[in-house]
Design a binder for these strands. Structure first.
Length: 412
DNA sequence: TCTGGGGTCCTAGGACCC
DNA sequence: TCTGGGGTCCTAGGACCC
């Protein structure tokens, strides 16, 4: 170890901007079914009742309504609430507009989710005339409101973890900055379950060790924590409860996987019916894959059984594929195998594509004659032709013919 | 009470190779 | 005759987040 101390780096200036009850705000702006003025508003139901709350207005929360709660339960707590579906398209659109606004303040913007953005303002002190981080945060908040009519809360500090914890203090609609040097003291007051990344299961593991608060855990050295929790989680927790988090803010890395899943109004008890529900997922995912210029090497089919058991089969193909034909063929085979292993009522089916590669960059280096290719040029051109037709005539134009016969589109 | 949909990351075991 | 390590890739399951 060197005896010369490294020069102290200037503390970073990181903000986390969090849109307050984002789905509710977007729903009110879009005003479907005239819910703009509804006080008691729940976003995220489903007509068949098998839905959960994505977001609820503060007035509805006063009745005990919470995110991820079954909508049916929420309506028992708050019978007068209006329920609307998540306005997906609008959420994406407004997300992108907020992102654009933030990029005017710093190029280092990371979208952490649909409604959260990290900003690294390190090195902008001179640009902003020595303005405090708090003052900058308030200007950003004001500008987002003016340009998008979305109210946001902002937390700030020298690290992502601190900004994330601080924003909880800022809600609703405020700004909370943790001064440099007081990170450890800020974290010390918390319960372990409040640390991002400590979920219900981990919290219970810690509780069984007698650890409930950060203070409880601070007395143990790294070795003990690693012994109890394993190397990875022990070290992770040791650093987190001291407010240590060097993770940089960076634009999100490329997408790793894409997936679609569908929960049925009623459990499905036949392989035929399951296959019919899998096909549109495959076509939608294939379309998305090709639109982004990707190919996928791994296909995963998963189900949630009637008894809430989740099962999956994933297969990695010899070559990455992009055609509906190849995706569908793999997916159907995997579904059959899932059904063979346990043919019980199914409430949800899902399909995921991962191991994504860019179709352009993919080297054509496979060894001929080892194994038949998963798809050929004809499959790929067919899929692309189908994409063009769907673009012109709508999604229903080309769903598998069998599909249309069994499930005719609603007449109008 | 009766549990959505979209993701990321981690772990552990087995296959396979050197 | 009894049993190496290390590395990578794949698979299944699960925790966690919004």
């Amino acid at each position: 170890l060197s005896s010369t101390p490294a020069p102290a780096a200037a503390p970073r200036r990181i903000l986390l901007l969090d849109c307050d009850m984002f789905f509710v705000q977007v729903a009110k702006l879009e005003d479907p079914e005239d819910v703009g003025r509804a006080d008691l508003l729940i976003v995220g139901g489903r007509a068949d009742g098998r839905g959960v709350v994505a977001s609820a207005s503060y007035a509805a929360r006063a009745f005990g309504v919470r995110s991820a709660m079954p909508t049916s339960q929420a309506l028992r707590l708050c019978p007068d609430a209006r329920v609307v579906p998540v306005p997906r398209e609008a959420c994406g659109r407004i997300h992108r507009r907020i992102h654009e606004v933030l990029e005017r303040f710093t190029p280092v913007v990371e979208a952490a989710s649909i409604d959260e953005f990290y900003l690294d303002l390190s090195g902008t002190e001179r640009l902003y005339g020595g303005e405090t981080l708090e003052a900058t945060a308030r200007r950003i908040q004001q500008r987002v409101w003016e340009d998008t009519r979305i109210a946001v809360s902002i937390g700030g500090g020298t690290q992502r973890l601190i900004a994330k914890l601080a924003v909880e203090r800022a809600k609703p609609g405020g700004v909370h900055i943790v001064p440099a040097g007081s990170e450890a003291a800020f974290v010390e007051r918390l319960a372990l379950a409040e640390i991002p990344g400590v979920g219900p299961v981990f919290a219970e593991t810690l509780r069984r060790r007698g650890l409930r608060t950060v203070r409880d855990a601070l007395v143990y050295d790294e070795k003990s924590l690693c012994l109890w929790l394993g190397e990875g989680r022990g070290r992770w927790l040791f650093r987190r409860i001291r407010g240590m988090d060097e993770t940089p803010v960076a634009a999100r890395s490329e997408t790793k996987s894409i997936s679609h899943e569908r929960t049925f109004a009623e459990d499905i008890h036949s392989l035929d019916a399951l296959q019919a529900r899998l096909l549109p997922l495959a076509v939608d995912l294939g379309t998305e894959l090709r639109k982004n210029g990707w190919r996928a090497r791994t296909v995963t089919v998963y189900v949630r059984d009637r008894d809430f058991r989740d099962r999956q089969i994933s297969r990695t193909l010899g070559d990455p594929v992009e055609s509906d034909r190849a995706i569908t063929r793999a997916a159907l085979a995997q579904l059959q195998e899932l059904w063979r292993r346990r043919g019980i009522g199914v409430r949800l089916i899902g399909l995921a594509l991962s191991n994504l590669v860019s179709a352009g960059a993919q080297e054509q280096m496979r060894l001929e004659g080892i194994a038949p290719p998963q798809e050929d040029d004809r499959d790929r051109s067919l899929a692309r032709a189908a994409d063009r037709l769907r673009e012109r005539f709508g999604k229903e134009a080309l769903l598998a013919g069998r599909q249309l016969e069994k499930h005719p589109p609603p007449g109008e």
